[in-house]
Amino acid sequence: MGNANREEFLDFLAQKAKRPRHQLHEHPFQPLNDLPETTLSGKSQDELLEIAQKNSEAVKVDFKKVTTENLGKLLDEYIAAKKIKNLILPTTDKWNEFNLDKWQKEQAATYWQPQAAREVNIKTAQSADGAVGFADYLLAESGTITVATTAGQGRAFNFLPTHYLSIIKKSDIVPRTRQAMDKYDSDIKNGVLSTSNINFITGPSNSGDIEMVLVVGVHGPLDMTYVVVEDL
C-alpha cells in the first residue's frame, strides 16, 4: 500500500485546497513573536528555584531542597515515611554525580534493567510501591519535571509505581517548556540524545471526570516528590 496510498491522499488534499504541494521549503514556519522564549526570562537560578517551588506545590507536589551531603538521608526518610517495601531504581551512572553511589548500593532495591525484556521490567515496575528516579529538567513556570526515556529508566518506570520521587539539579531548573524543548530538540537532531519518548510530568496523576471533583492518583503515581539538589 505504502506510497500509492499516501500520494493519492495528499494529492487529493492539495486539489481540494487548490494549493500545489511542495511549497513548504520556500515558506518555512517563522513565529510572529518570541513569547515562548521571553516569558519568565531573565531570572536568576535562585529566583527560578523559588518560582518552581511555589508552582510545584500548587500542583500537589511535595517539594524538597537538599544538598548532596544530605541527599541520602532525605531519601531514607522518604522511604520510611511512605513505608516503601519494593523500591525500584533506574540503571544509570548518575548515582556518582549525585554522590549517591554508596546509598544506592545499600538499598535492597529492584532495577529497571537495560537488557531485560519488556515483560520483566514492567513486572518489576508494577510490583514496586516506590520509585526514585532522575529528571532532566524542572520547569519553574509550571512545576513540571521532564524525563526522556532511556534504556535504564523506561516509560513504565514513571507510571506504574505507587509513590514517585524525582531528583533534579538546581542548575537544571529552567524557566518554562520552551527552554527544555530547545535542548531536547537540538540534542535529538545532533544525535546527542536517542530516545523514543519524552515525558513532561506535572504533579501526580489526577482526574476531574466524576462531577469535576479533582481526584489525585488515577492511573499514574498517587503522589509526587521533587528533590532539588542545591549544590549541583
Binding site: 508552582n55 500542583v59 520547569l139 513556570e141 509550571s142 512545576g143 513540571t144 517548556t177 523514543s196 519518548n197 519524552i198 515525558n199 513532561f200 510530568i201 506535572t202 504533579g203 501526580p204 496523576s205 489526577n206 499514574g220
Partner: peptide, 12 residues
C-alpha cells in the same frame, strides 16, 4: 492548568 499532568512526546 499551566500544563496537564502528562504531556508526552512519543514514538516507536
Amino acid at each position: 492548568q499551566k500544563l496537564t499532568s502528562y504531556c508526552s512526546f512519543s514514538g516507536k
